[in-house]
Amino acid sequence: MSFIELKDVSYKYPYTKDFALKDVNCSFEKGKFYGIIGENGGGKTTLCNLIRGLIPHFYLGKLTGECKIEGKDIRDWDTAELSSKIGYVFQNPFTQISGIKSTVFEEVAIGLENLGVPKDEMIERVMKVCEQLDIGHLIKNNPNNLSGGQRQRVAFASIIAMDTDTLVIDEPTSQLDPEGTENVFKIIESLKHSNKTIILVEHKIDLIAQFCDEILVMENGSVAFSGPTHEVLTKRELFEHKASIPEVSKFGLAMEDAGKPLSAIPITIEEAYELIKERG
């Protein structure tokens, strides 16, 4: 049995006429890094809300089908207990910042404080994630005076400080520069190595291709494609399906179209390099 399992799940937010999730079937194994991609409005955030139990405990509306976490139905989970197992980084960093804390340090510590972590340990954990995320120099600043990218790192830090077994992370790099983005991916990868399960929503396909074990492509409330990253991203249908694919994969397809195909479609720069070298 998978760690998280969805069977025929449909969901409609209150007062809306269309279903945000339609007959979704998917599962997530412990210790893997999943990327969720696809068009805006496709249901990515809604899926995260469900896995984290905000649906049905906070968002009412109509939920059908089965969503089980560790074998137990999401409807039967206590939300506080679930929050100590699954950390959730919200999509909009401007809303995740609590607005009630006057320093970045306190903001990052907010979850640990709620969990009742002893003070010394709390300080140590907060300092560690702040260094990791390159916001160590900002700990005394007011969160409301930060640039967009700095805020996003603070929001991310406050969740990883909690050290939950599973992380659901919704577009953590939308405001970040390329280096900050890559850094976030590297941190997520290192979390995977400590056997955490990661579910990441992201548009930056080149990085998804490089880091994720498996991907799900959401479209119009359903899972349009899913499977091991390489398998999914090299499908020509995906490209023709208005989903974004890595630049080097487009290049691979363009080589085919130009009548000089490589022996496979690459998804990372390394692979593309090897394939070109191999051809001579």
């Binding site: 520069d177 390329p178 900050g180 890559e182 890595p246 290049f251 593309a272 390099y273 070109i276």
Partner: peptide, 15 residues
């Protein structure tokens, strides 16, 4: 500037 060379540029550079 901590920016990144676009993927095709990076590939051309490595080649």
């Amino acid at each position: 500037a901590k920016i990144k060379k676009p993927a095709i540029g990076e590939l051309a550079k490595r080649l």
